[in-house]
Structures are given as structure tokens and as C-alpha cells.
Design a protein around this nucleic acid. Structure first.
Lengths: 204, 204
DNA sequence: GTCTATACCCTGATAGAC
DNA sequence: GTCTATCAGGGTATAGAC
């Protein structure tokens, strides 16, 4: 009886490993060539599978895309949460850490830069996903910024909602120039110039 | 003799009109679906042509793309130049006018947002174009910012090169959120919050 | 769970008539 | 300058065997 369970667990694990390999390969290709520019066959090959083998795990290319996006968001959310848990870190400092981390994963940065741009089109499969993603991200950060304003750490003459839009805009915009010329653009340093401007100065 | 010239001129004019229609249609489709997501047949149809009819004017899809990009840059460059000619306008104010103008042409904003993101890939036909475009844009603006710093209009505690990177990053980043939610994001107002932060304050 | 084979559509580009 | 006809190649997805 126990012997019968062993292959079953192995099967499930093998499935999970396959899905893991597929999503990882999908991230690589979506990052470099976008959703529309990537062919399933390439992802399949990189995951040591054929095309139908891949489609056994994900019913369609679009399903695979959404899986990739949600998975990345889950991981990033966890890391941001962990950063905020650290003593003395408020949202402005956490956002700097996020940018510093992004400098170590250019492929993922490229993935979101390209997919968000594609997702602007109303008929793109991930259009709603990205709208809701920005709404969620901004909402989360607004709470922290308001607290920082009340603690007189962040300047209060600009509405928290505006500050948050600016912070995410600066992140996204820096990524473009940095992706094009990584050696020339210091993303985290430049980003920090903005956050410094948003902090309360003596005599403000 | 004069009668012979008339049809020739008409031919040339017709050609120019065809090319004009094609590039306009190409802008629309590239904006909505990107370069890779657009098919030549759609552009041709929108320009009242068949596919081979289009390819008579532009030898390939890539040639058409580059034509579109250069044409847009030429027009935008002219308008920026005109803005700077106006009395009392320095580069920071000119950039605000640029953002305000962009709010009236969402299609073009989407075009560049998507094509730049695609162009990040090293094997994209417009990769080098966009690198050089940012270099040129930044270079142009740095000159103006340095003059504004010397005139004590813009804060001098941040290098002009850094300021320029930030200004273009904020533009690009705001465009993404604005394209996704035009009603919710006030692009030019938010951009102006940044430029105000970069101006010299009393007691700075 | 993964394969081979294949259906079927789309896409960029060419040849050659008008 | 624009068309019809057509090609070669690539793309997603399915059917059915193992």
C-alpha cells in the first residue's frame, strides 16, 4: 500500500517541476521578446518539452502569461512585506530597496516593462491585470506614506496619492533608460534623489 | 509641354499622399498593437491598399517602422524648438508644455511607450534608434538645465545630468499609469509637482 | 505526462499582369 | 503605382498513440 503512494507523489512532484521549468523559461522569453513576440515552441524547448507537452500543463499561451505575472507578483509582494517588517523601514526606504533589488534582475525588469506596455492595449489579455496591479500597489503604499507624513518624515504639502503616483512613475521610467544603457544609468542612486526630495527637510 | 508636367506632378503628389496615409495608419496600429503585434495587411487596408501595394512604398515592415519613428521625432523636435523660442521659456517649462501636449495625443504616447519597451531587446530593429534618441534628448536638455542652474532658476545641488534623467523618467513613467487609467491620473499636474521640486525655492 | 503528426490560420514578401 | 495570385515559413492548438 505504501509502495503505491510513492510513484503518485513522484508524479506530482514531477508535474510541479515541469510547471516550474516552463514558467521560468516563459519569464526569460517574455522578457526578451514580449508576449506577442514569443513562440510557445521556444519556451517548450527551453523547458525540455515539445509544444503539446507544454500545453498539457497550461491550456493556452495566455494562461501561461497570467500564471507568470501572478507568480512574479506573489514573490515580489513577499519580499516587500519582509522589507517593511524590518525595524525603522518605512515605505520610502522600502521602495529604494525594491529598486536596488531590481538592479540585480534585469530580465524581470524587462519582462514587466514590456508586458505593461503591451498591456496598455485594451484587448490585451493582461490589460485588466495591470490596471488592478497599479491600483493595488498604489493603495498599499498610500497607507504607508500617510503614516510617514503624520510622523513628519515625508513632506505633507503634496497629497500622498500624488506622491505614490510619482514614486511608481519614477521607478518605471528609470527602468527604461537603465535597460537601454545599464552602464550609463545608475537607477537606484537616481531614484534616491527623488525620495530625498520627498523627505522632510529642516525648515520645511 | 506644360501639359506634360501636370500628370507628373500629380503622380508625385499621389505617391506622397499614399505614403502619408500609410505612415498614419502604421502609427495607429503600432500604437495599439506594437510592431510585432501588427500585420502589414491591416495597415494596408486602413490606407486603402493591398499588402503588395503598401510594400511598393516601403520595402519592408522594418523600413516602415523606422520611417514612422523618424517622422514623429522630427515633428516633436520642431514643436519643442518652437516652444523654446517663446520668450521666458526655459527647458523645465518647455518640458511641462510637452507633457501637456502629450495629453492630447494618447495614440502617439502609446506608440512610443510600447515601441520603446519593445526596443529594449537587443535584437529589435529599433534598438539602436532608441538608445541614440535618449542620448540626444538628454544631451539637448542638459545644456538648457545647466543654463537654468547658472541663472539660479533650477537647484544646483543635483547634477544637471541626473536632473535630466529624472525628468525623462518621470515623463515615461507617468505615461504608463495615465495610459492605463486616463481619468484617474493627471499627467501634467503630477509632472509639474516634480518640476516645482527641482526649481530653486526661497532659502534654498 | 509526454510524444508524433497534423490541421489550420496567419504573415511577410515576391512575381508578374495591368 | 496598384493589383491578383502565390509562396515559404511560422504560429497556436488538437488528435490520438505510448
Amino acid at each position: 500500500m505504501t509502495k503505491l503512494q510513492t510513484p503518485r507523489r513522484t508524479q506530482a512532484e514531477r508535474t510541479r517541476a515541469s510547471r516550474e521549468k516552463i514558467t521560468q523559461a516563459a519569464i526569460d522569453f517574455f522578457a526578451r521578446q514580449g508576449f506577442r513576440g514569443t513562440k510557445l515552441a521556444d519556451i517548450a524547448k527551453a523547458a525540455n518539452l515539445t509544444e503539446p507537452g507544454l500545453l498539457h500543463h497550461f491550456p493556452s499561451k495566455t494562461h501561461l502569461l497570467m500564471e507568470v505575472l501572478k507568480e512574479r507578483d506573489r514573490i515580489d509582494g513577499e519580499r516587500l512585506h519582509a522589507t517593511l517588517q524590518k525595524n525603522g523601514k518605512h515605505f520610502l526606504e522600502a521602495s529604494i530597496e525594491l529598486v536596488e533589488h531590481n538592479e540585480t534582475v534585469p530580465g524581470l525588469v524587462q519582462l514587466f516593462t514590456l508586458l505593461v506596455a503591451e498591456g496598455v492595449s485594451q484587448d490585451h489579455p493582461a490589460h485588466t491585470f495591470f490596471i488592478e496591479r497599479y491600483q493595488r500597489s498604489r493603495q498599499n503604499m498610500v497607507q504607508g506614506i500617510i503614516r510617514a507624513q503624520q510622523a513628519n518624515e515625508v513632506r505633507s504639502d503634496i497629497p500622498a496619492e500624488t506622491l505614490v503616483v510619482m514614486i511608481f512613475a519614477m521607478m518605471d521610467g528609470l527602468q527604461v533608460q537603465w535597460l537601454l544603457e545599464p552602464e550609463k544609468i545608475n537607477m537606484s542612486e537616481t531614484f534616491q534623489v527623488l525620495t530625498d526630495l520627498l523627505k522632510v527637510k529642516d525648515g520645511n
